[in-house]
Amino acid sequence: MSLFWRIFGLNAVVFGAATALLLWAPITVSVPVVLTEAVVLVGGLVIMLVANAALLRIGLAPLDRLTQRMTTVDLLRPGQRLPVDGHGGVAELLRTFNEMLDRLEAERATSSARALSAQEAERRRIAQELHDEVGQSMTAVLLELKRAADRAPEALRTDLQHAQETTRESLDEVRRIARRLRPGVLDDLGLVSALTALTTDYGTHTGLSVYRRFDPDLPPLEPAAELVLYRVAQESLTNAARHADARRIDLTLRHTAAAVVLDVTDDGSGMGRASEGAGIRGMRERALLIDADLDIGPGPAGGARVRLTVPLPRDAA
């Protein structure tokens, strides 16, 4: 039944019932109308309006659910569908809305995969150039400064040694940025070694106390899954260091029979009512690429907690 005939039928039921009452009820209307008759007529009108409103609310309830879902739907949280019952115009509208969400989520996943792949390729290129070009140039400058300091008179030697130390610190910073852009240890030594280096680096440069725990005998994962786990851990540490005013961060990597779970908790101020920024939405996009579940909320002892659950391949599970 279309929406038009649904509303028409509901009103017809109400008006038909009111007409039947007027025909068979022992009620007459005098001229002029007396008070009791006016009360009966007004009461009947009120009952008719209330019944009509109740029936319309029942008939249009699916549209209310559709409106609420349209205002809250988020493509980074897939699976938000409306139940479709019966046939007719309203059911077809709900079915079309669900199919539209299917297409949008598929297109979003495809475009996100292309964008993140291009982003990783660009990060790899920039990291390689920093390491090969900038790093080698600064290494050459460092060697020249050392030779100049060895041959310089005592009055200039201190200044040259200071410039040498500054150049060495800048070279270390360039190498650290290159490692963050593209962690070579992830490709060479695996996820556990990469996370160990990451937490050590953050603890050294931010002053935070970073505690880590890895389950032994972690099952093998696809390279894409390892990269997502690394990037989510990296973004979680960055958020805790920059925005949460945390002093301690706990990073745990464990596995169950069907998944590998990454937990990052801190003792900072938490998220509160702050909206999700680009960093968190980027984590959600990465989680969708490997069908992982990302949960961000308050930690068990305050602060924030980021939990990424990566399902294992069927053969590994």
Rank of each mutant, 00 (worst) to 15 (best):
L35S: 08
E122D: 13
E235R: 05
D315F: 08
A148N: 05
L227N: 08
I296V: 15
T309W: 01
T36A: 15
I177C: 08
R286P: 00
A61R: 12
T252E: 03
S117L: 12
E122V: 05
I290R: 11
L76N: 10
L237M: 10
R314W: 09
E37D: 10
H162D: 11
R65N: 13
P300E: 12
E107A: 06
W24D: 07
P83H: 03
A17D: 02
L227M: 06
A197Y: 01
G79H: 07
E169M: 11
L55Y: 02
T36S: 09
E105N: 11
L189T: 11
L312P: 03
S137C: 09
G16C: 11
T265N: 14
E105G: 02
T139K: 15
L189Q: 14
A91V: 03
L251C: 06
V90S: 04
L195G: 01
G297I: 00
V13R: 10
I126A: 14
R254W: 04
D132V: 05
L191M: 08
Q68C: 03
P313A: 12
T139W: 14
G59F: 03
A113H: 11
L142P: 01
G190P: 03
N98L: 06
T28G: 13
Q68F: 01
E92P: 06
R65A: 13
A225R: 02
T309V: 07
Q164V: 04
E154Y: 09
E165K: 10
D293R: 13
G302L: 04
I177R: 00
M70N: 11
G270P: 02
G302C: 03
L10Y: 09
L289F: 08
D215Q: 15
L45A: 13
M48E: 15
D159A: 15
V306M: 08
A12E: 09
T204H: 15
A25T: 00
A304K: 05
K146H: 10
T204D: 12
V29E: 00
A121V: 01
V264W: 10
L23E: 11
L10P: 04
M100A: 15
G89M: 03
F97E: 12
G86S: 14
R176D: 06
A20L: 15
R95W: 10
N98F: 09
R248A: 14
E276R: 10
T252S: 10
R281Q: 12
Q119I: 10
L227A: 14
A259H: 13
I177E: 01
D295W: 14
G86V: 10
D102H: 14
E37P: 09
V141C: 11
G59V: 00
L181H: 00
